[in-house]
């Protein structure tokens, strides 16, 4: 006999919830994956559209500027371009020199990358994940795992590629880990993102740092990427280390890595795509001896 005041209809919501959960558990994974991808791709145009809208907004904003301002900007731009052309020529010279040395020493040449510049359409930085959604995906042959960089250094790694967009795990995410090294030192260490304070600067942590490396607030050192990990080219800045604390075993040091604050408001990134990964079977046949 049921007690007065207790009737079945009161538990209807929870019964439905239970049925729903049971049904969900038995759904085949293929269906779930399709549902997820569909759900994502369904709303992707909204984000791509809003991103284009922002671009248009920027263009319109620039149009409101006076002619003089524009002329000045173009002049600055030309100057910058000239500088970069010069730098590019220098770089080419160095590359030729390195190529010659590699040829002389019979060294295998370092992996080469092509880059794709992409606009950031959404920054999604919560306490649980830190990712960017960028406006290039399978349409530009972006591979999963590709390195993503910007003018300030490492941005992260591509974790998922959709039809017209890709997800990038940000370097400050606690789920992001990479092999790193200190500038002017070749020994690898481990970098991992760390959760950061509200209103605070993004940061990470370097561990397994060699015990003889010294860093202080007056002479900080830069943590850079190493090519050993296989994702990033060598020497791209990750962040700055101001202090290192030796572990009790004396083998290693650990310390916080202060990342570039611009990461939090990043608008544009470059995806580094290893050229090897893009070789078709025919290409591979052609290059193999």
């Amino acid at each position: 006999m049921s007690r007065p005041g207790l009737n079945f209809s009161q538990f209807k919501p929870f019964l439905y919830l239970g049925c729903f959960l049971a049904g969900w558990l038995f759904l085949p994974p293929v269906f779930k994956n399709t549902l997820r991808d569909t759900s994502y791709e369904f709303q992707a145009p909204l984000w791509v559209g809003s991103s284009h809208l922002r671009d248009v907004q920027t263009t319109l904003d620039l149009r409101t500027r006076s002619k003089n301002e524009l002329i000045e900007s173009v002049r600055d731009l030309s100057r910058e371009n000239a500088f970069y052309r010069q730098e590019r020529a220098k770089l080419n010279e160095y590359q030729d020199y390195i190529g010659r040395l590699e040829g002389l020493l019979n060294l295998p040449s370092l992996p080469e990358y092509r880059y794709e510049v992409a606009r950031v359409i959404r920054r999604d930085l919560t306490a649980w994940w830190e990712r960017l959604i960028i406006r290039k995906g399978r349409d530009f042959n972006i591979p999963v795992g590709a390195a993503v960089v910007f003018s300030g250094g490492v941005v992260g790694r591509v974790t998922k590629v959709h039809a017209y967009t890709s997800d990038v795990e940000l370097v400050s995410s606690p789920l992001f880990r990479m092999a790193a090294r200190f500038e002017n030192d070749q020994r690898p260490a481990t970098y991992q993102g760390r959760i950061h304070n509200s209103f605070g600067q993004p940061f990470g942590k370097v561990s397994d740092a060699p015990p003889d490396i010294q860093a202080s607030s007056t002479s900080p050192i830069t943590l850079v990427s190493t090519a050993l990990g296989g994702t990033f080219p060598s020497g791209i800045p990750i962040g700055t280390v101001y202090r290192l604390k030796p572990g009790s075993d004396g083998l290693f040091q650990t310390g916080p890595v202060v990342l570039d604050k611009r990461l939090l408001t990043i608008q544009e990134v470059a995806i580094l795509i290893p050229l090897d990964s893009e070789l078709t079977p025919e290409d591979e046949e052609a290059v193999s001896p």
Partner: peptide, 24 residues
């Protein structure tokens, strides 16, 4: 070796059961 260490650190998921252990 350093090469394997760096590759595994970078390419194994952070929450994988396989982790890198260091002794001396």
């Amino acid at each position: 070796d350093h090469d394997a260490y760096a590759k595994l650190i970078e390419q194994l998921p952070v929450n994988s059961p396989v982790q890198i252990y260091t002794d001396s």
